[in-house]
Design a protein around this nucleic acid. Structure first.
Lengths: 149, 149
DNA sequence: TTAATATATTTGATATATCAATTATTTTTA
DNA sequence: TAAAAATAATTGATATATCAAATATATTAA
């Protein structure tokens, strides 16, 4: 059976774009914060906006599983970006607190992220961005629907 | 500085779609080939089409670095999908040969891949797929151009 | 109100991701 | 041609990805 080569498909284009963006964005972040990864930055942004989030909820937002999230947060605690304490309302969970060092990142990271986003989207209109999101959402729905059944 | 939450951006939509697709596709592959990953499947497809490819060239096509490729191919050799032998024309390189077990995968995998692709793209027109590719290519170019400078 | 089920997180095992350094070989250049 | 530079692949170190199993706590149902 003959199928198009993987490199000709939309899937390849998707992987290519997001990998390139990540590499590019990480380089710009690393110049200022040598030991902050993109994902650690995302975790900080989410926690800052929703301080009561559980690890499981954060994991969903950044598309990782719980085990990965445990380890990522362990590392961020070790590097003094976060603190963990037991949630007395639900003793299965942790309260996750952003340390001063984490707050410093939150001050200086957003402009870098804004620049990364803007530069990577140069020449792509708002309308195209909406198209992009809509098409990708269809694809996500297709894949989710199917493997949940 | 206030920036849109990561979960509102196109980048999030991109990550979401490709992660969902990978999970969905992997599940369907695993039902038939329990120890073949999507990427191992891709490697087999590329090697089948271009038998003289070097590890470095394959790595580029699947967006991995050389170190990852070495380890992925090690594993595929261990699992008897590939064989390696030294390339006498250029003794830095290897010839990579697909074993009978690998060829069996190549017979039975393409229909599964075709089905995965079709199902995940249901309701997305050819035209939309082209739009998608074009927009993503712009993005890739933006990121590549910038961090190469 | 026990018992069963569900939820939140961790741990272990194995694979992959990535960087930097290293080895072996080939190509270029002085 | 010898030295320098480039290329192909590997290795070590550390982080992340993912599954399955385990632990602890909460919730639901009998």
């Amino acid at each position: 059976m003959n199928i198009p080569l993987p490199s000709e498909t939309v899937f390849h284009a998707i992987e290519s774009s997001i990998k390139c963006y990540r590499k590019f964005a990480q380089q710009n972040i690393s110049e200022v914060f040598p030991d902050i990864t993109i994902d650690q930055g995302l975790i900080l942004l989410f926690l800052n906006k929703f301080p009561d989030m559980s690890q499981t909820e954060i994991a969903e937002l950044v598309f990782r599983d719980n085990a990965s999230m445990t380890r990522m947060i362990n590392l961020m605690v070790k590097n003094d970006y976060l603190n963990r304490s037991i949630n007395e309302q639900d003793r299965r969970r942790f309260n996750i607190e952003i340390t001063p060092k984490g707050k410093d990142v939150l001050k200086r990271l957003p402009p870098i992220i804004a620049r990364n986003r803007a530069q990577s989207l140069q020449g792509i209109t708002e309308q195209e961005q909406e198209q992009l999101k809509n098409i990708l959402k269809k694809m996500t729905a297709n894949c989710t629907k199917i493997y949940a059944s």
